[in-house]
């Protein structure tokens, strides 16, 4: 894997989080390399979503540090982290439901161009912004749905929109939280292909339960069990790892 030679984009160092007396993160060390697609797997309650919330700034860590391209981001607010080039999608569909698909994306494009408090120009003639939003909509294959309200899109279309919104902010590091959850086999295959295409040249970290998605899409996998990284490696390494087998994968097959 040539990704091994790439510089580190995201470094997580001894990350801890406890809610009251409950320890959720018990010292996570993890390094994500430039351009890789990294999956985070683990049993329910392992802390995958918490880890995403800590990286993206939803929660503050109780201990440890997170660096994005060498700059410390732990303790920053979500919008500050987003402006430094790391954006996430959500496990539950999280779009602007009463706005059109096109406008959902355009809000992201506005963020990328730093248009935050512009009250003195009309948005309609802003060519660059509108063109870019249209191009992104096309990229996530929703151009035929441009004028439909986000709430009127199908579930899988909403998930695609979600990814489009994440891309629109121009983030180099993208965190996807279960992008194929609740999808049929066909929809999942479609989504995997879409993710592969649109994250080309970017760094991707995703939480995923579907092992076929993980093995098919990702370069490296980390297994999170009870707030610790049990193992990190290529899909082959993880598949053959005894500890992982007993802790997680084996457990899955019994069901």
């Amino acid at each position: 894997m040539d990704t091994v030679m790439q510089p580190d984009v995201l470094v997580i160092d001894d990350l801890q989080k406890h809610f009251g007396g409950l320890e959720i993160m018990r010292g996570v060390d993890l390094t994500i390399k430039q351009g890789e697609r990294h999956a985070l797997v683990g049993p329910n309650g392992a802390g995958k979503s918490t880890l995403f919330n800590l990286i993206s700034g939803e929660h503050r860590p109780s201990g440890g540090r997170i660096y994005l391209r060498g700059q410390r981001i732990s303790g920053l607010k979500p919008e500050q982290i987003s402006r430094r080039g790391l954006t996430r999608s959500f496990q539950i569909t999280n779009v602007f439901s009463r706005m059109s698909a096109f406008e959902n994306i355009r809000i992201g494009v506005m963020a990328r161009h730093g248009i935050r408090f512009n009250l003195y120009r009309r948005i309609k003639p802003m060519r660059a912004i509108n063109d870019e939003a249209h191009a992104l909509l096309q990229q996530v294959r929703l151009d035929h749905r441009a004028d439909n309200l986000a709430s009127d899109l199908t579930y899988s279309e909403q998930r695609a929109l979600e990814i489009g919104m994440t891309l629109a902010t121009g983030a180099e590091v993208i965190l996807l939280d279960e992008p194929t959850a609740g999808m049929s086999r066909d929809e999942t295959a479609y989504m995997v292909e879409l993710i592969r295409q649109v994250t080309e040249g970017k760094t991707l970290m995703m939480v995923e339960h579907d092992m076929s998605v993980v093995f098919g899409l990702c370069d490296r996998i980390s297994v999170l069990v009870y707030g610790r990284i049990l193992a990190t490696g290529t899909p082959e390494e993880i598949r053959s790892n005894q500890e992982v087998q007993s802790a997680y994968l084996g457990e899955e097959e019994e069901h």
Binding site: E79, F96, S97, R98, E103, I107, M110, N118
Partner: peptide
């Protein structure tokens, strides 16, 4: 009709999302 006017609607729909897109909610 301004960009901020559109952002206002996005804020109404989903405050959390605009924060994660880099806006100061």
């Amino acid at each position: 009709r301004t960009p901020f006017g559109r952002l206002t609607l996005a804020l109404r729909d989903n405050e959390q999302r605009i924060r994660f897109m880099g806006f100061n909610a």
